[in-house]
Write a protein that binds this DNA or RNA. Structure first.
Length: 342
DNA sequence: GAGGGTCAAGTCCGT
DNA sequence: ACGGACTTGACCCTC
């Protein structure tokens, strides 16, 4: 099975802090744009709807453009998380009518079908990751309903791409954290009111603060699980989980034959100043001695700068794909890929 | 064009 | 109690 390294949401042409106008414009064509509710509400209806049309067209074309680049990359690099911003205001009460209009729906269906077909033809693994406001396990029933609504927005897009009729087809996933005070129990409750496609595509990821791997493993019979190895490092107070850990085998089994994905990140370079690049950061020591706060260690680095940490992540690569969460996106993936070749 | 305030939504950390 | 961070920081407005 193909082993992959993937990037999240944004494709960068170079790592320059200050980019030339040409590069910025080229990157713009490869990435999504958005607008704000406040701005839309300040406009006339015509201007606002025009803006949404424009953003929609730009975004769906940008996905096709970026996938055209990904399709030419090494097979082992063909994995990407799609932005949640593709159809802005899809679940916002005052603007959701826009997305239910026939002409808008037809355009979306056409473009998403084209995108899904292209991804399948070129063996690109895709995913979504709804943001922090999607709290399926909230203790507030109203928030649960709105979160399911937000989740189903992602399902709608997946469905239009042709995913969701079977269990994680092409490895597709829509990944969320447990969040919410109701924990695994709350997630089960939400699953009951979700569509079959949603239940085929949802994955649950362990987080750094409240719900760690022990909590997500309670859901191993309900959903496929994403292990974020850096979240676990912080949640556990410094444990570098290993391939032979029985919990890892349970995560693999939760995918029921589909190749899993793990998330990989490292603490920021400027938080661990002068740390040797070939030594694993002693997170347990830093937390115990309060040399560094958990909040600071959480922040994602620019690049995969620590080769020891990279080797740790790559040790899982036989079993699973690796989604890299770094500010430098696809460029950080290249760094990791190059290291994997030695 | 640069810089700063604003942005639909939830939750937890640190003070 | 409350600001800030998280997050894919981007967009919009003012100067």
């Amino acid at each position: 099975m193909t082993r992959r390294i993937g990037f999240a949401c944004k494709y960068m042409l170079n790592a320059d802090v200050k980019k030339s106008k040409t590069i910025l414009e080229s990157e713009r064509a490869l990435n999504t744009g958005t607008t704000t509710v406040a701005w839309l509400n300040r406009q006339s209806r015509t201007v606002a709807e025009d803006k949404l049309w424009h953003v929609m067209q730009h975004n769906l074309n940008s996905v096709y453009n970026v996938l055209s680049i990904v399709a030419k990359m090494d097979l082992r690099m063909r994995m990407m998380r799609l932005s949640s911003d593709l159809l802005p205001m899809y679940t916002e009460p005052s603007w959701r009518y826009f997305w239910q209009q026939t002409d808008v729906k037809m355009y979306c269906e056409h473009m998403f079908a084209k995108i899904g077909d292209f991804a399948r033809e070129n063996d690109i693994r895709l995913s979504f990751h709804p943001g922090q406001f999607c709290v399926l396990a909230s203790s507030d029933p109203d928030i649960v309903l709105r979160s399911v609504d937000e989740f189903e927005y992602h399902v709608d897009m997946a469905r239009m791409m042709g995913y969701g009729t079977s269990w994680h087809d092409q490895g597709f996933k829509i990944n969320v954290h447990i969040s919410g005070r109701e924990g695994p129990y709350g997630i089960r409750g939400a699953l009951h009111i979700m569509t079959p496609e949603a239940r085929n595509l949802i994955t649950i990821e362990n987080d750094e603060n409240s719900w760690g791997i022990d909590a997500s493993l309670e859901l191993a019979d309900d959903v496929a699980l994403v292990l974020d190895i850096h979240h676990h490092l912080l949640h556990s107070g410094g444990e570098y989980i290993q391939l032979n850990d029985p919990r890892w085998q349970k995560v693999v089994d939760s995918w029921r034959g589909v190749r899993p994905t793990i998330h990989y990140s490292i603490s920021r370079e400027d938080v661990l100043v002068d740390h040797p690049k070939d030594v694993l950061p002693d997170v347990a020591f830093m937390l115990n001695t309060k040399t560094c706060s958990k909040t600071k260690l959480r922040a994602h680095s620019e690049d995969v700068w620590n080769t020891a940490s990279n080797d740790w992540a790559l040790s899982f690569w036989d079993d699973t794909d690796i989604m890299v969460e770094c500010k430098l996106k696809n460029i950080a993936c290249n760094t990791l890929f190059i290291q994997s070749q030695y």
